[in-house]
Design a protein around this nucleic acid. Structure first.
Length: 232
DNA sequence: CGCCAGGGCCTCA
DNA sequence: TGAGGCCATGGC
């Protein structure tokens, strides 16, 4: 089994980067940099959901600005997002890119949350929640899984471009592996625990930013031992 | 200046 | 199902 490899990679990442404590939420940023218990209030959960949508194919720094703007306008609020006009909302989240599409998606997800309350969704199991989230236009597999894991604290492994890049370069999957296939591989080989899935994915993102970039820094990479795509 | 970023939808085979 | 085009801003 590949279980051991995934455990070893996790340990190396954790030793080097320490706990990431995702998901970053604005009101905790200054108070609890090491916060890692997951969102608790409905407002925190909502902010994580919004962040998961805003960060689609976009750097977190640009998203952060948009979230700060949303907070300034007191728009981390289901009813207010539903009430505001799409162009006005798009202008506020402009820095996150694709703002016209994301404006619509935010409104879609809020209409969805009006229909299925947070308290109702909290009671669902992972697969039920996933089906529901995927029915929202603008929410695909990765965004749905990010919401399940980081907003609802339920166990699922989020697959993103970084996850694919790191594991395919290392030699654990093909570079064009499908979302479902890689997710299954990870969930079959990493002990199923939402805390571990949370931290593992966050560490992968950090590693992809530091070393396993588009143009990788293989020489100093902490995972270069055993990596098949290592550039000498 | 070009490249890239914590994707997803639509269209067309 | 899957490849290709499209959406868009800001950091480096």
């Amino acid at each position: 089994m590949k279980t051991k490899i995934f455990e070893q990679i996790y340990k190396i990442l954790l030793n080097n980067y320490q706990l990431q404590g995702w998901w970053p939420v604005t009101e905790y940023r200054s108070l609890h940099p090491q916060y890692s218990g997951g969102p608790t209030t409905d407002k925190q959960i909502l902010e994580v959901i919004f962040g998961a949508i805003l960060t689609q194919n976009t750097s977190w720094k640009n998203v952060e600005k948009a979230i700060v703007e949303l907070n300034k306008h007191a728009l981390i609020d289901i009813n207010k997002i539903i009430a505001i006009g799409p162009p006005a909302l798009a202008a506020i989240i402009r820095s996150s890119g694709y703002h016209n599409q994301k404006s619509k998606t935010l409104k879609e997800v809020c209409r969805f949350l009006k229909e299925h309350s947070l308290s109702e969704l909290k009671e669902k199991d992972v697969s039920q929640l996933r089906v529901l989230l995927l029915s929202v236009k603008g929410i695909g597999q990765e965004t749905a899984d990010s919401i399940i894991l980081y907003a609802f604290n339920k166990p699922i492994f989020v697959i993103d471009a970084y996850t694919k890049r790191i594991f395919s370069r290392f030699g654990l999957c093909k570079h064009d592996v499908s979302y479902d296939e890689l997710q299954k591989m990870l969930m079959d080989n990493v002990f199923e625990d939402e805390k571990l899935f949370n931290e593992y994915h966050a560490l992968l993102v950090e590693h992809a930013k530091q070393y396993c970039r588009t143009k990788p820094l293989c020489q100093e990479c902490i995972l270069n031992k055993g990596c098949q795509k290592k550039i000498k």
